[in-house]
């Protein structure tokens, strides 16, 4: 840890003005929460957030800094998890995006307005169902309460 002998300098802090909307901290309220679909089916865990400038500039073309307002455009899941654990960065083409416009509610879980089955993020779930689990007898039936 980089630290001077006298310890870190504490900057003087001013009171934060009241904000005009709901305040969310990424790590405390968004990242690593369970994402549920419109029926309450688990979709994925929220692994990362994609941020872009409001005027449409994307981070790939131009450097973004404090001079332009930035918003969350998508929730990300899938291989981006590896980057949070091990570092590095997967190509943007392999991110699974869930648009912010589909987010209905943020509580102890993040709820979407769409069905899990319609999302790219759950392709592996469908693949497993279609090629393995769905082919085993009984896989498409509710569990029995007798027998």
């Amino acid at each position: 840890m980089r630290r001077t002998r006298t310890g870190p300098r504490d900057v003087s802090r001013e009171p934060e003005p009241r904000q005009p909307g709901r305040v969310l901290d990424a790590r405390l309220h968004l990242l690593d929460r369970q994402v549920l679909d419109v029926d309450g089916m688990p979709v994925c865990t929220l692994d990362d957030l994609e941020l872009e400038a409001v005027d449409g500039r994307s981070a790939v073309d131009e450097r973004i800094d404090g001079s332009v307002p930035v918003v969350i455009t998508d929730l990300l899941t899938g291989p981006v998890l590896g980057t949070r654990v091990f570092g590095g960065r997967p190509p943007a083409s392999r991110w699974h995006r869930l648009p912010w416009a589909h987010v209905v509610d943020i509580g102890t879980a993040v709820r979407l307005s769409v069905r899990s089955g319609d999302l790219d993020a759950t392709w592996l779930e469908r693949w497993t169902r279609d090629h393995i689990i769905g082919r085993i007898p009984g896989g498409n039936h509710d569990p029995e309460s007798s027998g």
Partner: peptide, 9 residues
């Protein structure tokens, strides 16, 4: 250590 968002857009 964290990013703060405000839902006021």
């Amino acid at each position: 250590v964290d990013l703060r968002f405000v839902l006021d857009g």
